[in-house]
Design a protein around this nucleic acid. Structure first.
Lengths: 184, 184
DNA sequence: AGTTTTTAGTTGCAACCTGAAACCTAATCA
DNA sequence: TGATTAGGTTTCAGGTTGCAACTAAAAACT
């Protein structure tokens, strides 16, 4: 991260605390991963994760509360309940995978990482989860800068840079809108 | 996620538990974010985060233990200690940002998100953290498949797909190596 | 030099959270 | 009908969190 240095000591507001409210709890990410892996039922999570019943019950309820999972009684067997990911839940996939990749890269023991996530098209393993520029270039942390919204879009020469047509799928941030808000 | 469905109930091994051992603890990500923002000293973290002294002490020690921060006494003022990110710590950036972006997208309240992360080159806000295919295409969760290593690289027609020259910077997974190991 | 302030901790204690085991209730199976 | 399965809840021991007060060392003031 270039040289943000001094200016931003007081600025605490961002989405992180929001995200951590649910996903910061112990087991939340493990339950999420199990969901991605296709597990749906209470007893499945229980035996896969080795979590205590009461905690699992509590965590599932919280994940449902926060709209990450949806809980629906099974049609064919009314004892059973299905827990499935919502769109909001699926949107945690990049976070989960990058955490997983980090853990794999630095894991003390030899992590076998099986099964592997692959691109459905060619069945080749996916690359690293990446931070992209507005135009799709992969950025590393040296390419990043922290800027107050007021100063957004200003280039060194004082002109305002404009982003081209955004080709991003699955936008999490509406870049164009963010720039406009910022340019107020 | 296409239709992985039944096959992979028993497969638990991946980098996630490793990652969560440190980063799953309360405050770890918040401390990390503060570090990214340039904070270095105990009292800075303390007043920025509103965390208890003992907990902060404990968390910093753990992050240092795990090689995410390095702790070095300040040269000019020997009361002070500097906590700085290591390379391993910087590699958590995609995880932190994607969590942040998710929190921003779904945060209940109006999250102001200031300061904003921008590309240092053009000072435009970064795009969403993305899952990339080996050739750099952005993948969504529908494009993903879970495959046992044994079955890796096999296309529907039975031929073996080959990845082109990997153009990834900052590889977390060595794709080519992974494929070879898998093809054993 | 002596006192005060700053920095980075530690200690003690109450409140809260976790986890193992036992218990409960409704639905299904034999 | 009686046993079993699914999804919980209750109880209680032990661990974690967080506030407040205390400490020790270095630096700054007088």
């Amino acid at each position: 991260m270039g040289d943000l240095r001094e200016p931003l000591r007081e600025l605490i507001d961002c989405g992180l605390p929001q995200a951590l409210e649910v996903m910061g709890e112990r087991w939340s990410f493990m339950i999420l991963r199990a969901s991605f892996n296709g597990l749906k039922h209470f007893e499945e999570f229980l035996s896969e994760l080795g979590i205590a019943r009461n905690i699992l019950s509590n965590r599932l309820a919280k994940l449902v509360d926060h709209g990450i999972l949806k809980r629906e009684p099974c049609a064919d067997d009314r004892r059973k309940v299905e827990y499935r990911l919502t769109g909001k839940g699926f949107d945690l996939l990049p976070a989960m995978i990058s955490l997983r990749q980090w853990g794999q890269k630095y894991g003390a023991e030899f992590v076998s990482e099986d099964p592997v996530l692959v691109d459905a098209k060619d069945r080749l393993p996916i690359g690293p989860v990446s931070i992209l520029a507005h135009d799709g270039r992969v950025l590393s942390h040296e390419d990043l800068w922290m800027v107050r919204k007021d100063d957004l879009g200003k280039r060194s020469d004082g002109s305002i840079a404009t982003s081209g047509a955004g080709t991003n799928t699955g936008d999490i941030i509406d870049i164009e809108a963010a720039r406009k808000v910022a340019a107020r």
